[in-house]
Write a protein that binds this DNA or RNA. Structure first.
Lengths: 320, 320
DNA sequence: GTGAAAGCGCTAACAT
DNA sequence: ATGTTAGCGCTTTCAC
């Protein structure tokens, strides 16, 4: 059996209450402090986080819920989140819901049963009931990269609509009229916003008839297949692709079909600059502030755990 | 205050013990099961894992320690691990040690303080003291993708030496003599093994004088920089790159310098087939069984938690 | 500054 | 199949 606070009490001739006070910054006489420290050293005592959590209702653990853990955009965010959290003594328990609504709910219940103090979520369900299992139980939630209709959540997003509109305007200003977009399923928040930005830019330029939407599934393969479908029919003057992985896939498919993105066809991707630039020198991409998303998400969840209000924060992406 | 098992008891007219039996697979009458399920639904009950852990001395949580979470190879593995673990009711708490030995030790202590039942580790320190903090406390450990000198650990690795030798032999059999290798720091287990396979293949073919090693830092940029350095001096007949991310970077750098990997220069990468094939049709790569690594790691840690012995498992990679 | 005592929510041994 | 009871290890009043 593991060493407990009672063993320390016996060892030092004090009581559990005093040992507890010692651990929690209470007033303990110097020579008793020393006795306690010696006893810890001698016994190799490790505080039982279960008992502590049972009393305090705090786990110092944050649940993180992602559509796909094998996704550079997601991991770039949570890498920064993890670092921020750990600095503050918080751990991060990660679940992947494979972009499936049912698994999303299951994973959330699972995380809640792990007694997480808060949740950072790239949600699929963005309706008014988003993350209800958590908010019902008064577990604070930060939605990242998604705006939801649940006012109890904090939201950390980028200026999806504006930056997409700006991106498409930049393609238009280069003389392009036939601009196609490869976008995820429009039930996904970011896809809808980015598509709306594209549509409005096209409409405002009088290019309503040129609106051309191809659905991709948010993976490299999704972008690849979507571009193959598109280019199998015709080569547009320009192509706008609205996620990291799909940008890589779409540029690959174009290359595959003899169309070099950025020279044979104007190309505006999302985030994948590092991977694509050497192969397709002429491409442009929207660069999202991923580290900032991760950091702000971590700071926001901790602020909520400490009793702070829900906040909505919009960060700015840029075109490069 | 949160809903507890007592509330369910009151709601159903049963006692806490019966509710507990229900959760733990005990025999409960069908109509009582239904009552319980309705009560759970109605109240939004979530089981308190602190109380449970306090009784059972099990957290049903596995710590996962990675060099870099933003690394497709790592996330491909842990994605599968996460799925396997969750099916068995285990959560996964992830730490990234940024390829730094000191942070590795800190992160391990952190995970242990979270009372994890076991640890899955892509370790940096592979000496006899690897993961000592865990083994000292009788917390089982599975080392993935690394062999260590600590006999208490289980190990799940691929046939690094053999597959590298085979890969280089295949380059040699195509008539190449001047074959360079881009490899990580040789203090890393996989880098050392893969480099040894390369060297022995070269030696056995009488190409000792052609051995040419360039160090990369295991990232896309590392591969990119290494290839730039190499190709700035000369273009070898063939290039062997020993990690996923470096393969992408190296092929990008080559393209950048007007050398198309797979046609201007034979190219053998690691894992990055999907990303590179469309751009560089002629490339070959070693394909690691990443999902299997993740699954076997999960199965092995659970087996150890259930009292099973440490095991060493070697999985086979293939060339495609 | 320290002690005594209660209780967090659950499980498990035993009784029925 | 279900109820009774005790206790996991800690924190937290409330005394002294």
């Amino acid at each position: 059996m593991a060493v407990t606070i009672k063993d320390l009490a016996r060892e030092t001739g004090l009581t559990p209450a005093t040992i507890s006070a010692y651990f929690n910054g209470g007033n303990v006489r110097a020579y008793n402090k020393e006795k306690i420290e010696n006893a810890i050293e001698k016994t190799g005592y490790i505080r039982n986080d279960f008992a502590r959590g049972l009393r305090t209702h705090k786990s110092r653990t944050i649940g993180v819920l992602l559509p796909e853990i094998v996704n550079k955009f997601s991991t770039s965010i949570i890498s920064e989140t993890e670092e921020c959290l750990r600095k503050r003594g918080y751990g991060m328990i990660v679940c992947d819901y494979r972009s499936d609504a049912k698994r999303e709910r299951e994973a959330m219940r699972f995380l809640l049963s792990k007694m997480v103090d808060g949740l950072i979520v790239i949600a699929h369900d963005t309706g008014p009931g988003a993350c209800r299992a958590a908010t019902q139980n008064d577990v604070p939630v930060v939605a990242v990269d998604r705006m939801t209709d649940n006012p109890k959540l904090s939201h950390v997003v980028i200026n999806n609509y504006d930056i997409s509109k700006k991106a498409v305007n930049s393609l238009i200003s280069r003389g392009n009229k036939d601009i196609a977009v490869i976008c995820g399923d429009l039930s996904v928040y970011t896809a809808a916003k980015r598509f709306a930005g594209y549509c409005d830019a096209m409409k405002e330029a009088g290019l309503t008839d040129n609106i051309s939407y191809i659905n991709g599934d948010l993976s490299v393969k999704g972008g690849y297949d979507a571009a193959k479908t598109l280019l199998g029919k015709r080569v547009p003057q320009a192509l706008f692709v609205t996620t990291y992985e799909m940008s890589i896939g779409a540029a690959m498919a174009a290359k595959d079909m003899g169309v070099l993105a950025g020279s044979d066809m104007d190309f505006m991707g999302f985030d994948a600059m590092d991977y694509l630039k050497p192969f397709c020198p002429g491409i442009m991409t929207v660069i999202q502030p991923v580290e900032e998303l991760g950091r702000v998400a971590a700071e926001t969840i901790i602020s909520m755990i400490d009793g702070g209000p829900a906040r909505n924060i919009v960060l700015n992406a840029n075109i490069r």
